[in-house]
Simulated scan of single mutants.
Amino acid sequence: MNSFAFHNPTKIIFGEGTVSRLGKEASAYGSKALLVYGGGSIKRTGLHDKVLAQLQEHGIEVFELPGIEPNPRLSTVRKGIDICRENDIPFVLAVGGGSVLDASKAIALGVPYEGSVWDFYEHKATAKAALPLGTVLTLSATGSEMNSASVITNWEERRKLGYLSPLAFPRFSILDPTLTYTVPRDQTAYGAVDMMTHVFEQYFNHTKDTPLQERLCESILKTIVENAPVAQENPNDYAARANLMLCGTYALNGGMISVGMDQDWASHDIEHELSAVYDIAHGAGLSIVYPNWMKYVYRERLDRFAQFAVRVWDIDPSGKTEEELALAGIQATRDFFRSLGAPSTLTEVGIGEDRIEEMAAKSVSFGPLGHFKKLGQEDVAAIYRLSL
């Protein structure tokens, strides 16, 4: 096990009806707020009215930035920064899923910074200050409600890059599972894929003597496998939605499940190029890429992949070699993603091989990807081709 330091300052407020605590929590950060949300589903469900009522009850003047895209655009982030600066707004409130939360983090980081917020994502600058951020989560997936990461798309340059800053942890996050009842079947699938691959990125490593962390990862994976199909078949099943919401939060919150372990993240970088160029859903891209990354690298540590097959997918090890178990676990992962309705190939989502070399080159612009197996441009291109 590696040495580590772990700190997570986000206050989680979990359970049905917890939106009623929003006004009190937000009032600690000033008398104005920028309300950031997506395509309008929070208006159709009535959540927008509840949020406004809470803020107004506590004397908070609200400015709004709707229309955050599924792969949030740098241009929209800049609009939010301008609104905050022009109106001297001290607090950002994100109401939505991971894309809304990521855009809100970028806004919070960008307001105090004199240069372009894109400097952070290109690793040209380090954030020194940020506006406080609160969130109300409506989609279980990214873990952005309790982590310091955000991913933004520069659509003009077709680049999708992430940035981590300890200043970007939300001050509080309200997690009411009933707010995810209206999430459609495909988005439930993509959320499950996203949170599972977050765990994979931490689980597949070469660090020795980490039995607790490994079993924490495996328990989250098994809980997602048990609950995602239930949530798809019965969207109003509170237990299934609550378990998925907590899995998403625990899967990626700065290391709670993986302290002391190395991490990989190559597959996320590979997928970011896909959604930057083709604007596909992040979870859909991961459902295609990740099993093929597994197939490309599994021999780097057969024992971990065999363990994954037995502990997560309950594959009987009797009479099987480690390699046979590893391949069975990879196939079980692919089959589960497919059972949820997530795509398995790039062809299914209308993507061919014409831009593979371009995407592979961009993916390694900051250097080789991953840690489990270092991937260069040729490796990334090979994974894309496996995914066709």
Rank of each mutant, 00 (worst) to 15 (best):
F6L: 06
F14T: 08
G23W: 03
S31W: 11
S41Q: 06
S41H: 10
K43H: 13
V51W: 13
H58N: 13
G59K: 07
E61L: 13
V62Y: 06
G80R: 02
D82G: 12
D88G: 15
F91D: 02
G98R: 03
S104C: 07
K105D: 02
V111Y: 10
L131R: 07
P132C: 12
L139K: 10
A141W: 11
T142R: 01
M146D: 13
S150A: 04
I152A: 03
I152P: 01
W155K: 10
W155I: 12
E157P: 05
E157T: 12
V193E: 06
V193N: 10
V193C: 04
M196R: 00
V199K: 00
F200H: 09
F200L: 05
T207I: 01
S219F: 11
T223V: 15
V225N: 13
A228E: 03
Y238R: 10
T249M: 11
H272C: 00
D279C: 05
A284C: 01
Y298I: 07
L302R: 06
A309T: 10
A309V: 09
S318K: 11
I330C: 09
T333Y: 07
F337I: 01
L346K: 07
T347V: 15
E348W: 11
E358C: 00
A360D: 00
G376Y: 01
S387K: 03
L388I: 09
